[in-house]
Computed example of a mutant assay.
Amino acid sequence: MSTTDTSTTRVALVTGGSGGIGRAVVQRLAADGFAVVVHYAGNRARADEVVAAVQASGGQALAVGGDVADETAMTAAFDAATAAFGGVDVVVNTAGIMILGPVASFDLDDLDRMHRTNIRGTFVVAQLAANRLRPGGALINFSTSVVRTQFPAYAAYVASKAAVEGMTLILARELRGKDITVNVVAPGPTATPLFLNGKDEQTVQNLANAVPLERLGQPEDIAETVAFLAGPARWVNGQVIYTNGGLA
């Protein structure tokens, strides 16, 4: 860990920080001077790799584990961030799972599992952020552009992310007077393992072609929007930012 003065360093907690978009967010915020807490659900080794990369570049980082839907585990994550760096200024909630399938045959156990992580998990982290972010802070939750595009087989996933949008925009109004912004980033097709898993080459190419820029997004594209909301975007609040290259 570097010896940067934590009294003046802003601190970001990134859930799912060892994943595709989460990793890019961690790297971007660290490059912007944040001390970063890299949350992981099960793969400690991968989180440690992200932490080591940040530290090798002269930044500050810490790995913390836990189920985002478990309020005790996530309280411990916030406590660890505070103990290491003095507090939390930004929470980026990228943690989530995606299971696809048509409504008519969707496995209800899969529905419950996905909604536990995507809805309850987001709610738990948002509740903690609402109570523990320092003034001037930001909470950034994650949705999906498929909320608008309505692709077949995404109904259960979209239902969970539409819930994220609803709770986030209400929370932005509930935090009146606290100087904390609350927004949603809704990526389009982005080249991450979560997105690419189970899709054949033609399906991936068709999704890339649906975007006017004719390519998939990269995790770094999404991280750029997060960095804007985490830093200079103090007049952006209670919004859903569709970061998708122009996908309808």
Rank of each mutant, 00 (worst) to 15 (best):
F142A: 05
R113E: 10
T168Q: 07
L128Q: 15
R215F: 00
G96K: 13
Q239H: 12
A153G: 05
R10Y: 02
I21D: 00
T149I: 11
L13H: 01
G96D: 15
D110T: 00
L139N: 02
D79M: 04
T144P: 01
T9F: 05
A95W: 12
I119N: 11
G17V: 03
D109Q: 07
A153P: 02
P152Q: 09
G86T: 09
A191E: 15
G188T: 12
A163L: 08
D32C: 08
A83I: 07
V51G: 03
N237I: 02
T9N: 06
N118V: 02
A95V: 12
R116G: 04
A223G: 08
N131A: 11
G188C: 10
R173E: 13
A63D: 12
A12Q: 09
G66L: 12
Y154W: 13
D107S: 03
N209Y: 09
A53R: 11
A230L: 01
V50M: 03
I21Y: 00
A35E: 00
T243M: 08
A162E: 15
T75A: 14
G16F: 06
R28Y: 04
V90L: 05
V184G: 07
G19Q: 14
V226C: 03
G136P: 05
G101I: 02
G217C: 03
A56C: 03
F142M: 12
R28W: 06
L229Q: 06
T149D: 10
Q150T: 05
Q218H: 15
G136I: 07
G198I: 01
V37L: 11
T192I: 11
S105K: 10
I222N: 00
M74E: 00
N206H: 14
L216S: 05
L13T: 00
G245C: 01
